[in-house]
Amino acid sequence: MKRFVSTLVPVMALYMWLTAGSGDVFGLWAASELVLGAVLSVITAWLTALHVGSAGVTLPVNPLRWILFALYLIGPFLLEMAKANLDVAYRVITGRINPGIVRVNSGMKTAGSTTALANSITLTPGTLTVGVDEETNDLFIHKINLTEEEAARSAWDSRDLFGFNLPAMIRRFSE
């Protein structure tokens, strides 16, 4: 029952989000869309509850975490992304690159938080995630420009890859 409801609510919400502006019911929806959405949501939730095991990936239920996640996306993450793009633009024009792959200690404990970090790394300055060590959650990062000091450094921490302390923020909303 819990699994049924936890699928039903997000699916119905998504359907309403995508059909907003179709009519007059509650100001925004067409009656036919609401009925169809409800029927489809019930079918989807029923099938999901029947076939999907409980051991899957869990999403954080606590709304505070979602708010933190949203703040992270529009704040520090967007800034780092803007920096990343100016950096790539500079290297595209000048062609100055000195690439290499380094092993980075991510400090993350769960699969979800490692994924969030890996995605953040890919979209931020000069770095691209190539692989992950699934036992230690270490990430293998392709860096587009290694300085001489960086090429020789042995212990990398994910904190070193960003201007802001993004890994700490990711830990706060995903672990």
């Binding site: 992304m81 990343a84 790539v88 595209v92 690439p99 691209l128 392709h142």
Partner: peptide, 21 residues
Amino acid sequence: GILRFPDVYTRLHASTKATTF
């Protein structure tokens, strides 16, 4: 960037970051 960079990985830098932004 895709045209100028030398290998798969550096090209991915250009294609993922710049096109996402």
